[in-house]
Simulated assay, not measured.
Amino acid sequence: MAEIRRIATDQRRSRAVVYNGMVFVGGQTADDRSQDIRGQTRQTLAKIEKYLADAGTDKRRLLTAQIWLKNLERDFEGMNEVWDAWTAPNAASTRATAQCELGHPDILVEIIVTAATAD
């Protein structure tokens, strides 16, 4: 039976869960919510990169991403600019982007990813 490893767990959630060769990184948002979409996206991706490293993998092994934007029309281009610069060359994951009401009014972007482990 495969072991389940939880990373940065509290009563409500784990930031990442490793199971059966996969890393599931829960929804991440920026800590400094005074930033514009580019700043919030950079912060969010940095957090994701850290949790992937904690799980023993990296962004080159991304399988899929879900991106939630507060305002798709206003923020899609800026978020994509940062996303495109961040993704590893020739390692683009599948991806879906949607607009939704996020957990706090000053959150502009939330990102969820799944990656393969390095094992």
Rank of each mutant, 00 (worst) to 15 (best):
M1W: 07
A2T: 10
A2N: 04
I4F: 10
I4W: 13
R5N: 02
R5Y: 01
R6H: 10
A8Q: 08
A8V: 05
T9M: 06
D10M: 01
Q11G: 04
R12C: 01
R12K: 00
R13K: 09
R15F: 02
R15G: 00
Y19T: 04
M22R: 13
G26F: 08
G26C: 05
G26M: 06
G27I: 10
D31P: 07
D32S: 12
R33W: 06
R38F: 10
T41Y: 13
R42P: 07
R42K: 11
L45S: 05
L45D: 11
A53E: 07
A53G: 14
A55Q: 14
G56K: 02
D58H: 07
K59M: 04
R60E: 00
R61Y: 14
L62F: 06
A65L: 13
Q66S: 04
K70N: 05
E73I: 07
W83Q: 03
A85W: 11
T87P: 05
A88T: 04
A88D: 04
A91P: 05
A91T: 15
T97S: 10
Q99W: 07
C100R: 06
E101S: 13
L102M: 07
G103D: 13
P105K: 00
I107E: 04
L108G: 11
V109M: 07
E110W: 06
A115W: 01
A116H: 03
